[in-house]
């Protein structure tokens, strides 16, 4: 027993064992490191990256500016300024939609809260930047990201078509309001 212990001590068997593992990985094992910028992992289903805006198949935006995402957001990173669509009277849209990605915790509550499925979690995670301001995204940026990751778009529902026809008719008639005067 003592002899075995002694011989191991003399011949640095622990080092040899350790070096063995090193040699094995060095020459025989497949590399685990991914060549990240050149090679990318496939993400699991349901991965929650940056939140994006979606469009219907006729390229109109889905968002109606209801601010429910803002209400649901636990980190207060969403700001919605709703208003009337300047091109379509009586239609509610988000005049401004600001997502502060620096604050976002990617919980996806906003996606669940959205009543018209206008929001989605994209697989986008490469948001590192030297300019923090570029992480405060507006609606256009979010729509562009949505276009990139969600090319298959939902069909505009029928009830919306009906209302659209109504909107168009109303637009023709003209609906003067006190508000237009206020904004003018």
């Amino acid at each position: 027993m003592n002899l075995v212990k002694w011989s191991k001590w003399v011949f640095f068997s622990e080092i040899v064992k350790g070096l063995g593992v090193t040699v094995k990985h060095l020459f025989f094992a497949k590399p685990v490191t991914e060549q990240y910028p050149h090679q990318k992992r496939t993400l699991p289903e349901g991965y929650r990256g940056v939140i994006v805006h979606l469009r219907y198949d006729d390229l109109t935006e889905k968002c109606v500016g209801c601010s429910l995402c803002e209400a649901a957001c636990p980190s207060h990173c969403i700001t919605v300024v709703s208003g009337e669509d300047p091109h379509m009277p009586q239609r509610r849209i988000a005049k401004e939609y600001i997502l502060d990605v620096t604050k976002c915790v990617f919980c996806g509550f906003c996606v669940q809260a959205c009543p018209v499925d206008a929001l989605a979690s994209s697989p986008e995670y490469e948001m590192a930047t030297g300019n923090k301001r570029s992480l405060i995204m507006d609606k256009e940026a979010m729509l562009a990201l949505g276009d990139r990751y969600f090319p298959v778009r939902q069909k505009r529902p029928k009830y919306l078509d009906e209302r659209l026809a109504l909107f168009k008719k109303m637009q023709r008639i003209g609906f003067p309001t006190a508000k237009q005067e206020q904004q003018a």
């Binding site: 500016g65 209801c66 601010s67 803002e70 209400a71 709703s82 208003g83 009337e84 509610r92 309001t177 006190a178 508000k179 206020q182």
Partner: peptide
């Protein structure tokens, strides 16, 4: 109200 239409949500 047409004047404040779509400008707010009650909780805001």
């Amino acid at each position: 109200s047409r004047l404040s239409m779509y400008d707010y949500r009650p909780w805001q």
